[in-house]
């Protein structure tokens, strides 16, 4: 496997990137880490004569807190996120999830923006961000992750648009967040993120996102509805919610197993993940 030739354009601004993308049209793509894109090129699944490298655009780097959200520039690497003192302090569950993404080589090069724009259904960050009601920013507008991820390898971005940042609301104190996955191959077979808040022994906010088993990560809305208002230790409600989450995830047959098997994985992971989130909320 060798990379076919292409021209690499290292740009210093979003405007410059847009100009190049417009000029070269379908023969150009954005590269922001390249851990996925370069593989595609090597395998011959995609071909571009021009790659526009946006990693050098300074305003797209950095992590900050703004208006109750952690804002992560699209060129920030997974490794930077997992080690960021700000993330460790304000959103430690995000750092913990990022520490489990792929492997150290991918995390050192791959970026959060690149991960989301590739829209691989087997994405840990996408599942996590969905549960946290995160938004992505491009063209000066903010779009919920749930609308941004249209399908496998497809996002709401149009050609020439560049993702600039990801906004993740910081949950109030007492919120428990947990992320779990099961991985046989390089990409996870199932990913689950749960978020919950408890007051007076009752669940006041329950969120479940499931990824990697279907065409795109999804929120298990019915499962969340069943759990909200129930006792935090109601195992029967949790078991029912796990069934609903498995149904909502719309698993498909693939190299990780049959749809039936993956539905089982989702049920098991949701129950475990929810228990983790409950423990975190209690702590």
């Amino acid at each position: 496997m060798t990379l076919p030739p292409f021209e690499l354009h290292r740009v210093g601004s979003v405007e410059e990137a847009r100009e190049l993308l417009t000029r070269y049209g379908d023969d150009a793509a954005v590269i922001c880490g390249g851990t996925e894109l370069l593989l595609l090129l090597k395998l011959g699944f995609a071909a571009y004569g021009h790659l526009v490298d946006i990693k050098g655009i300074t305003p797209l780097g950095g992590i900050r807190v703004d208006n109750g959200s952690v804002v992560i520039g699209s060129t920030v690497t997974h490794r930077q996120i997992e080690r960021s003192p700000l993330v460790l302090e304000r959103l430690p569950a995000l750092a913990a999830m990022e520490r489990r993404v792929a492997n150290i080589r991918v995390r050192s090069i791959g970026t959060l923006g690149g991960n989301l724009c590739f829209s691989d259904p087997h994405s840990d960050p996408a599942t996590f961000l969905l549960a946290l009601d995160a938004e992505v920013e491009y063209d000066g507008t903010r779009v919920p992750v749930t609308r941004f991820l249209v399908g496998p390898y497809e996002t709401a971005l149009e050609h020439g648009q560049v993702l600039t940042a990801v906004h993740i609301p910081i949950p109030p104190p007492g919120t428990g967040i947990a992320h779990r996955k099961l991985a046989f191959h390089e990409r996870p077979a199932a990913t689950v993120t749960c978020l919950m808040r408890i007051a007076d022994g009752l669940i006041t906010d329950a969120r479940i996102a499931v990824g990697s088993v279907g065409a795109r990560p999804v929120r298990a809305i019915e499962a969340e509805r069943v759990l909200t208002g129930t006792a935090a230790d109601d195992r029967c409600a949790l078991s029912g919610a796990a069934d609903l989450a498995a149904e909502a995830s719309q698993p498909v047959d693939d190299a990780n197993g049959s749809a039936l098997y993956k539905a089982h994985l989702v049920r098991v992971l949701v129950e475990r993940c929810f228990s983790d989130a409950r423990a975190a909320a209690a702590a």
């Binding site: 489990r100 779990r180 996955k181 099961l182 991985a183 046989f184 191959h185 390089e186 996870p188």
Partner: peptide
């Protein structure tokens, strides 16, 4: 503990 570890590391 081993289960926790292997669940998140492909291979």
């Amino acid at each position: 503990y081993v289960a926790e570890v292997v669940e998140t590391i492909p291979g």
